[in-house]
Amino acid sequence: MKTTSIQSMKSILALLAVSLTALLVLPLVNLADAATGEKEYVKLRNEIWNLFFRMTTAAFVVGAVVSGTIIWLVWRFRESHPKNKAPTKWETGEAAH
């Protein structure tokens, strides 16, 4: 049981890592594009709102992973789940504390 849970945890973490790398790379590509155009002054509000949307996107990606995990945990490990009829090894005392 322990190994499978860690494996699934690892796959979630891998997914998280991939999506965040994408988030890191995309704005850099945009930045490279923007640098070619000629501009006199920094557009303050655009810079700040762009930062805001980059960070909100990251927050919502992480949020989706975390809340998805919570919802799945709640659904899978509720005591009324068909696979949860029998007491776990912690309840029967087989597992060492």
Binding site: S67, L73, F77, R78, N84, P87, T88
Partner: peptide, 28 residues
């Protein structure tokens, strides 16, 4: 918290409901 819940047999009585709701909102 989440790793503790993982693999358990969870009884959702009021304290547990509020605790799990609290974790979700804590993250937000």
């Amino acid at each position: 918290y989440l790793a503790t819940m993982w693999g358990g047999r969870i009884r959702f009585d009021a304290p547990m409901k509020f605790a799990v709701g609290g974790i979700a909102l804590f993250f937000s």
